[in-house]
Simulated assay, not measured.
Amino acid sequence: MRKQKPQVMKNPGNQLRTRCQNGFTLIEILVTLFILAIGLLGLAGLLFEGMRNNQGAYLRTQASILAYDMADRMRANSNMAASYGGFTTDGASTALPGCASLATGCTPSDQVTLDLVGWTRQIQSVGSGITMVPGGVGSIQFDAASNVYTVTVQWQEASRGGDASEQIAGDSAYSVRFTL
């Protein structure tokens, strides 16, 4: 490596001063690398947040599909719709009723049991090996005064903070309200 020759400069007071420029480029490179590293860390953080938000949107979509699936089952068996009310998948049986394998099908009251068991199996991922919503719990409520059914699907998700780190309330539940 060649050693640079010091430059001699004159200042207004006719005093000689020497200035050496060794290592100046190395400092510029280090500062540039530091700024680049900070930018890449910010980009990685944005990528991570985007992936987490995408996963949340996916789970919300799955919960929506499950909730509307039960609403459609209830509409198909509307004569027995009141029998669906007050149900929760938490601790519910996942054993299919005997009419599920019969060629003649189920009676309307047995169809209620088949629908509830089938919905429970989907939410709890029984028999399929595919988890639609992790830690999923579904519930059906019926308000007789207003004739409104509410189908709710809840799941477990890593909590996300909003502005100033507050929790986003109700972010891991999806509800459908309808009348028959």
Rank of each mutant, 00 (worst) to 15 (best):
R2Q: 12
R2P: 10
R2Y: 06
K3Q: 06
P6Y: 07
P6I: 08
M9G: 01
K10E: 08
N11I: 13
P12H: 11
P12V: 10
G13A: 14
G13E: 09
N14L: 11
Q15A: 12
T18K: 11
R19D: 05
R19P: 00
R19I: 14
Q21H: 04
G23D: 07
T25H: 06
E28Q: 13
V31Q: 03
F34D: 00
L36E: 00
I38Q: 04
G42Q: 03
G45A: 08
L47D: 02
E49Y: 11
M51I: 12
N53A: 12
N54H: 13
Q55G: 01
Q55C: 01
Q55M: 13
G56H: 14
G56C: 05
A57D: 08
L59A: 02
L59R: 10
L59E: 05
R60I: 03
S64A: 12
S64K: 10
L66Y: 02
A67Q: 03
Y68T: 12
D69L: 10
M70Y: 11
M70V: 07
A71H: 11
D72H: 11
S78V: 10
S83Y: 14
Y84M: 02
G85V: 03
G86C: 10
T89A: 09
D90Y: 09
G91H: 07
S93Y: 07
T94F: 09
T94D: 08
A95W: 04
A95T: 15
A95R: 06
L96N: 03
L96H: 02
P97I: 07
G98N: 14
C99V: 12
A100I: 02
A100C: 00
A100E: 08
L102P: 00
T104M: 05
T104D: 02
G105D: 11
G105I: 13
S109T: 14
Q111H: 02
L114F: 12
D115K: 03
D115N: 13
G118D: 13
G118I: 10
W119R: 01
T120Y: 11
R121H: 11
G127T: 07
S128F: 11
G129D: 09
T131C: 03
P134L: 04
P134A: 06
G136A: 04
V137D: 01
V137S: 02
S139V: 04
S139T: 14
I140F: 04
A144K: 03
A144L: 00
A144W: 00
A144H: 00
A145C: 02
S146I: 07
V148Y: 07
V148N: 10
Y149Q: 02
Y149A: 04
T150I: 05
V151G: 02
T152K: 13
W155I: 11
W155Q: 02
Q156F: 02
Q156P: 02
Q156D: 15
S159I: 07
S159H: 04
R160A: 15
G161M: 10
G161Y: 06
G162N: 14
G162S: 13
G162P: 03
A164I: 11
Q167A: 15
Q167C: 05
G170T: 05
D171S: 15
A173N: 12
A173M: 14
S175V: 01
S175H: 03
F178K: 05
